[in-house]
């Protein structure tokens, strides 16, 4: 009979984030109530708001440990951003960022590491990959190193002892 047209309420729409090239980028989230134990691998970005124990391996993608995230795992990713707590080694292909609320205990390996003011970190940082990317002038090919000779790599830091160099006793 009389079919009244129902009022249409606007529905929320999900707009996935886009990459710089405009492609839609998949992003998975481990929610605050989720606990994962084991190895995580995949082909999309990951946000951890829950607990993860094991390993996370998303070498081509980004991993964000959110403010409520608790990770006890080694993490491999392109860019790793930590706002929560991590205990484990982090390997960033491009970059590791420890945000001001982030707490990390472990070793960081990435060409670029950023520790924001207020963040807590204990461990070692290795940014060697960054330096190897910088092109250095080539050494002369005829250069030969005599065994035992002092080179830049084995030169002691103490080049010339100060005249005041007294023993600490």
């Amino acid at each position: 009979m009389w079919k009244r047209e129902e009022e249409k309420t606007p529905q929320p729409t999900y707009n996935p984030p886009k990459t710089p090239s405009g492609d839609l980028k998949e992003r998975a989230t481990i929610g605050a109530s989720i606990f994962v134990k084991g190895d995580l691998t995949g082909e999309e970005d990951l946000i951890v708001q829950g607990r993860v124990e094991g390993t996370i391996r998303l070498s081509q993608n980004n991993v964000t440990v959110g403010g409520r995230g608790r990770v006890k795992a080694d993490v491999r990713a392109r860019i790793i951003s930590v706002e929560g707590q991590v205990e484990g080694n982090l390997y960033g292909e491009e970059k590791i960022v420890i945000r001001k609320s982030g707490r990390v205990k472990g070793n960081l390996v990435a060409p670029c590491v950023s520790l924001e003011e207020g963040s807590t970190f204990k461990g070692s940082i290795d940014m060697e990959a960054a330096k190897t990317e910088v092109k250095k002038p080539e050494a002369p090919k005829s250069r030969s190193v005599t065994p035992g000779a002092v080179t830049a790599d084995n030169m002691p830091l103490e080049l010339n002892t100060d005249s005041t160099g007294s023993r600490g006793k």
Binding site: V113, S114, L115, E116, E117, S119, T120, F121, K122, G123, S124, I125, D126, M127, E128, A130, K131, A152, D153, M155
Partner: peptide, 28 residues
């Protein structure tokens, strides 16, 4: 050359940025 640092104090971005001019390995 590339130095390895051991900082017995707390970690900070400012120290890391400064020390990274001298070496790529820093332990906090």
């Amino acid at each position: 050359r590339d130095y390895r640092f051991l900082d017995l104090g707390p970690a900070s971005g400012q120290k890391l940025e400064f020390l990274s001019q001298y070496g790529t390995k820093v332990h906090f």
